[in-house]
């Protein structure tokens, strides 16, 4: 089922074009990774899809134009994790998770029994029960990222858009995060669009890769097709080599000896 369909997206920062004629779709149960150099337009595309920026083109969520979604209803459908999520250092883990129920709150911030049940479920899914009453500033970078993913999950979204969520994580935590996103997409039919600089991690866990450069989509499709050394070398302006592995996505890396 196609959840997101965006066509002919264009956006400029002043006179500087950031996105040009971009088309993208996202379906339930699918992980799509946005890859590309710094400044290529990955974050801009995500913000445009969420309506945080307004450009030209058509964006439909669940076949309904973005403009016709109220903020509250869209928040029940799509969750967003920015590159650097912000928080109050006085907050506990449980406070951060409860923020995810913001789209469902009544006047005076009243919560329903269901709100707390969802927060408990999310906490169990992510193994956060032991941390619930800990201060957010007491946790490691990996734990904090799990909690921000938990805040997104508490929204009960059908889609998650994540902007370079592995930037500040070590290798093990990057792996854990991508495994989690993959599991959510398969077990809960969640659609996941994740921007990442790690091409191999993206290829290992994504169903499709979308390579973007200078605001244009250069290539889109399964990892095997998109991770073409010639296209990547042209895009990143460095020589890139590829190792093919039978039954597994290829590995790509910069050629250091040149």
């Amino acid at each position: 089922m196609t959840l997101l369909s965006a066509n002919q997206l264009c956006f400029s920062y002043g006179r500087r074009p950031a996105l040009d004629q971009v088309n993208i779709t996202l379906s339930a149960g699918e992980v799509v990774a946005l890859i590309g150099p710094n400044g290529s337009g990955k974050s801009t595309l995500i913000k445009l899809l969420l309506g945080h920026l307004s450009g030209s083109g058509q964006i439909h969520w669940n076949d309904q134009p973005l403009q016709r979604w109220s903020r509250r209803e869209l928040a029940k459908l799509v969750a967003y994790l920015p590159q650097s999520p912000q928080t109050d250092v006085d907050q506990r883990v449980v406070d951060v998770l409860r923020l995810g129920r913001a789209p469902y709150l009544g006047p005076f911030g009243l919560e329903s029994e269901r709100d707390l049940r969802i927060v408990r479920q999310v906490s169990q899914t992510l193994g956060l029960d032991e941390l619930l009453n800990r201060g957010i500033d007491e946790l490691s970078g990996g734990q904090r990222q799990s909690i921000f993913v938990g805040r997104c999950l508490a929204q009960e979204p059908k889609a998650m858009l994540l902007d370079e969520p592995n930037t500040f994580l070590d290798l093990a935590h990057q792996m854990d995060l991508f495994k989690l996103l993959h599991r959510l997409s398969k077990e809960q039919s969640m659609a996941v669009l994740v921007a990442s600089h790690d091409l191999n991690l993206a290829a290992a866990f994504a169903d499709r890769l979308v390579l973007i450069s200078q605001g244009r989509i250069i290539s889109s499709g399964p990892p095997d097709q998109v991770l073409d050394p010639k296209i990547l070398s042209d895009t990143y302006q460095i020589p890139i080599e590829r190792i093919d592995r039978p039954g597994k996505p290829p590995l790509v890396f910069p050629r250091f000896d040149d």
């Binding site: 969420l50 309506g51 995810g100 913001a102 789209p103 006047p107």
Partner: peptide, 24 residues
């Protein structure tokens, strides 16, 4: 102010995060 107190909790977040939580 009490009416909007629940959503004031999102005011400490970035604009993008608050909007994505359904808050104008």
């Amino acid at each position: 102010l009490m009416w909007i107190a629940g959503h004031l909790n999102t005011a400490i977040l970035s604009e993008g995060e608050a909007q994505s939580l359904g808050v104008r």
